[in-house]
Design a protein around this nucleic acid. Structure first.
Lengths: 218, 218
DNA sequence: ATGTTCAGTTGAACGTGTTCAAAAACAGTA
DNA sequence: TACTGTTTTTGAACACGTTCAACTGAACAT
């Protein structure tokens, strides 16, 4: 019973926080306000969440879990490019209400040391959960991938996705139309490259890319 | 005479700040400490610098000016790839003492709204000063660039450089050897692509890249 | 000399994220 | 019921970046 109440308090705080973030944006929402809106003392927010950032991280985690089922339709397309397009479009739509404050996640994105970075250790489970979607898209569409590239392809697509999402978050065009254009254009290019990479002629090029990936991963 | 004293105070604060940043890192250095070390009241630091971030921005600006002459030897190479390599190596060496706290510049890098971002409006002059180096390398080595790509090539190289620097800043390998590897590998690839792009066959590919650049720039 | 002006300087105060010692509420046991 | 230990909750306190009203003093005008 203790746990139940505790869990409820936790989500009460989480939801008050997300409401505030949506209304006022992330930097404008204070921990005191979040606590007040939850009818709770300031310190309690820190009992349940390690930091203000951690609240966003938790939202992002839940979001990806919610997103699983929502991606099901996207994963029905036969062609890889259609799947990638549909996956990205689904994410755009799902995250749209929170687009503004998701910038908070990205503002520290470049710093791999920040726990909020998509590349950080704390966000590893989230990241790997996300990899799986791309792996599935590759597996099920049976697109042919050179053996040497195969183990890294999902990761590469994930990085591509992060770039797109970064652009989308800061996209000020009407209805983020520029992001949609970017996707339409770049998905085609990515898939073309992927297919081209099968040419035996391009083995040295693949080697270079693989070396780069190896260096990037340490 | 008033100006003289004023300017001296300004650099006194700037240098105390940079010393502290180097010793303790950016987040660990407080404005109070900076002021104290300059023998000055806290508020005065804000009379001369709009914010803590602004101090870093000013350092970066001066750094690029210092860097001009230092890049002269690099700009003597005949081959583009050698120039690019040398330019990056020169930057590595110059920035090395401040590598740690330059992360402060990058941690907000992803947020184009942050004044500290290399893509922000406040850092435009700095950025364009930097473009020029790449433009010169392209011009003077006479590497052939398709007409449609030419106006954007320096910008593209600059973005490539920012990626490399980002990696270098967070590179924990001994002597940042991984960054050097990354440069050696990737410069070759970039130049190969550039040369390949001249093939008439690749006109559609160029068109795609140009569309992407256009979308990215809005 | 005296007064005026204003760049230069001060330090207290504000609001922030975060910490922490203490209090309260609870669960289990006697 | 009373005692004990744990989990939950409180709110004051801390250090930070930043702001601001007030003060200082050199340069200049009268």
């Amino acid at each position: 019973m203790r746990q139940q109440r505790s869990a409820e308090t936790r989500v009460k705080i989480l939801e008050a926080a997300l409401d505030l973030f949506r209304e006022r944006g992330f930097p404008e929402s204070t921990m005191r306000e979040i606590a007040a809106r939850s009818g709770v003392a300031t310190g309690l927010a820190y009992y349940y969440f390690a930091s203000k950032d951690a609240i966003v991280l938790e939202y992002y985690q839940r979001a990806l879990e919610d997103l699983g089922p929502l991606l099901e339709p996207a994963q029905q397309h036969k062609k890889v490019e259609d799947r990638l397009n549909a996956i990205l479009e689904a994410k755009f739509q799902y995250f749209e209400p929170n687009r503004r404050f998701l910038g908070a996640l990205m503002s520290n994105a470049a710093d791999p040391a920040s726990p909020l970075s998509p590349f950080s250790e704390p966000s590893r489970p989230i990241r790997e959960f996300d990899f799986a979607q791309f792996q599935r898209a590759l597996d099920e569409t049976g697109v042919s991938i050179p053996k040497d590239l195969a183990p890294h392809m999902a990761k590469i697509l994930w990085m591509y996705q992060m770039g797109i999402l970064l652009f989308w978050i800061y996209d000020r065009s009407e209805n983020q139309s520029r992001s949609r254009q970017l996707v339409k254009r770049s998905v085609g290019m990515v898939v073309s490259l992927l297919k081209l990479s099968n040419l035996p002629l391009l083995k040295p090029a693949r080697k270079t890319v693989l070396d780069l990936v190896a260096i990037l991963e340490g």
